[in-house]
Amino acid sequence: MIIPYKYILKKTAAFVAVLYGAITLNFILPRLIPGDPAETVYSTIIREGGGSVSPRYLHQLAAEYGISNAPMYVQYYNYLVDLAHGNLGISVAFFPEPVSYILYHALPWTLLLVISSIAISFFVGNRMGRYAGIHRNSIKDLSMDMFAMFMASFPAFVLAFIVLDIFALDIKLFPIGGAYSIYVNPGFNIPFIISVIYHAVLPVLTIILTSLGGWELGMRNNIIPNINSDFISYSENLGFKKYQVNQIAYRNAILPNLTGFAMSVGLSVSGVIIEESIFSYPGVGLYMITAIDDLDYPLIQGIFLMVIIAVLVGNFIVDILYGFFDPRIRQESE
């Protein structure tokens, strides 16, 4: 296999540039919002306590939250240095936990949900789309498309409630929420792993069902022009076997869905908020809701930064893979 070094280098440079831009924006945007967490907490105490609190307390809060009045360039420099050390500030809502500590504990759960559900739904959805496309305009195709369109447009939160109601509340087959049972010891042991899988079934099922339709429809619509293309009819005319012809069409049709795959892995880090909050799953989404409720700027900022990085990394990986899968792309950019 030829390794397209030039292409990879180019994509890496673009990735670094965009990442730097995103990090900078993440610094600028919160500073454009009036007020800061210290002021928020201070005013809440005054409002709810009803009494008067010394302004010195405000300065104390600001110092604890690491809010500084230094010039912007100094703040920016400190921000970059902190970021390089993985220091994202201190959470307001979970004071005095550092943001990085919260993310470090929440991210694995979200990744577990996202990666397992998207991998399954990508695989199953593409296979369904392939089947529908090959049997296009038949009753099999129509019924599959109906199902896909219905599922794709079904609101995730409604489906999550229905699933929860039926499987957790009515027939009590699966737990109502959480990531693992309180009766197991977290760690690398079999009861814990089984408990984790058992607790993940319902949220994963919900995410799969709502995202399946998009893959199915995308694949179906990509594979039909491929089936009608000149190189497919030529393969048929040379007596290629049915499975070979379908494989060629599928291989060419999956390329656009691959981009979608990366995008959705990136976006889903924040995109499973609904499922996480309904199933009280301790992922990033659940923390994000809390953070927004409590105006926890450092945590929101940290989560956004993580989402941005997830999207960028996802796209970067697909860009590189695309170079291997589609030689035309590689050449165009060389």
Partner: peptide, 17 residues
């Protein structure tokens, strides 16, 4: 093997990838 066909749009008859 016995009969063969060379198509009209032979330019696009090969799998691009």
């Amino acid at each position: 093997t016995e009969i063969s066909f060379i198509p009209q749009a032979a330019m696009n008859a090969l799998n691009p990838v």
